[in-house]
Every structure is written in structure tokens, then in C-alpha cells.
């Protein structure tokens, strides 16, 4: 057995050095030079330079004059974030969804989009489908006293359509643009 001890331990330590230290350091080095913004968390700053969040991490918005993100099972906690893990057959899921639907439903706009009624896998989903944003247009327009058409154009500009995934709107970026909108 002793003849296995030296190679086992020394190779384990060598692999730790190569894959556990050198490899992450090389990736970090290249990433910090090539993609510094992304490597440091895709941070969003306000006009004075203070960090207001990350493009990729949802933050809560309340009040009629903002677009609301998807609800979060972990109340937008980031350390650590969580999902509801509710089974489709769990009565608590149906109860929660139907209750939110009563609160969020807008007359004459049809049923509430499911994205606004369900929590995401991460609890930090930064996006909404365009239809779930449009469902909120009338409310935000009225609260801000701006024409719906102006907001519709703003939303249109924020729709991202990748070739291999569904169209999405980043809620934080949209709200930031909304804040800068001259009313």
C-alpha cells in the first residue's frame, strides 16, 4: 500500500495546484482583462457612480409607477436565493397563484400572464416576457402620466430576442430607462 501513497498524495496535491489554483487564476486573469464588466458582476451604477444592482440580478420594484419583476420565492434575497419547489399538485401553489391573479388582474386585458404569477427557479430572474411587461403598461402610464404609446416604444427598445431562446425584457434596465424618461 505504501507504494501507492506517494503517487496518490503527490498527484492529488499537484492536481490541486493545477486545476484548483493555476486554472482559476488564469481564467480570472484573462477575464479581468477581456471582459472586466461581466467578470465583476455586470454592475449597474447610477449617475453618481453608486452601485444600484446588477443587470443579471432581479431587484424588487413596488408601487404603480414601476414595472414589477416576477415574484421571488426568497423575497429577492441574494445570499442565498431560493425557489418555491412547489409541486404542480401542491394546493399551496394553486392558492397562491389564484390569489395573486385576483390582485394583479386588470379589467379588459384578459387573464394575467403566468410569468407574473409564478416564482422563478433562481428567485432572482431579471427578466419578464414582453407580454408580461405589456400587461403592466396601462398602470405605469397612468401613474406617471405619460402616453401608453411612449412606454410601448420604450418597451419595444428593450426586448431582446436571442436566436436560441425566448424574447425577454430586463426589468431593471427598463425601469432605469423609465426613470430617465422626460414626462
Amino acid at each position: 500500500m505504501a507504494s501507492f501513497l506517494r503517487p496518490a498524495l503527490s498527484l492529488m496535491l499537484l492536481m490541486t495546484a493545477i486545476t484548483g489554483v493555476v486554472y482559476p487564476l488564469v481564467v480570472t486573469g484573462i477575464a479581468q482583462v477581456a471582459f472586466p464588466a461581466q467578470a465583476n458582476g455586470s454592475l449597474v451604477r447610477d449617475s453618481t457612480g453608486n452601485v444600484v444592482g446588477s443587470v443579471l440580478i432581479a431587484q424588487d420594484f413596488t408601487g404603480d409607477n414601476w414595472f414589477h419583476p416576477r415574484p421571488s420565492a426568497g423575497a429577492f434575497a441574494t445570499v442565498s436565493s431560493s425557489a418555491s419547489n412547489l409541486a404542480p399538485s401542491n394546493p399551496a401553489l394553486a392558492a397562491r397563484v389564484k390569489e395573486s391573479a385576483v390582485q394583479l388582474s386588470v379589467p379588459d386585458q384578459g387573464p394575467v400572464p403566468l410569468a407574473l404569477l409564478t416564482t422563478s427557479g433562481s428567485g432572482l430572474d431579471p427578466h419578464l416576457p414582453p407580454e408580461a411587461i405589456r400587461y403592466q403598461l396601462a398602470r405605469v402610464a397612468a401613474a406617471r402620466n405619460v402616453p401608453v404609446e411612449t412606454l410601448e416604444q420604450l418597451v419595444q427598445k428593450h426586448i431582446e430576442q436571442p436566436l436560441v431562446g425566448p424574447p425577454v425584457v430586463n426589468v431593471l434596465l427598463l425601469n432605469q430607462a423609465l426613470a430617465q424618461l422626460k414626462s
Binding site: S84, V112, S120
Partner: peptide
């Protein structure tokens, strides 16, 4: 009141 589409609970947009 609820949109009748594929489930989204636990899924990312």
C-alpha cells in the same frame, strides 16, 4: 384570471 399556458413555476424566463 390565470393565463392557461405551460407551467412557469421554478423556471427562468
Amino acid at each position: 384570471l390565470v393565463q392557461h399556458t405551460a407551467p412557469l413555476e421554478g423556471k427562468e424566463t
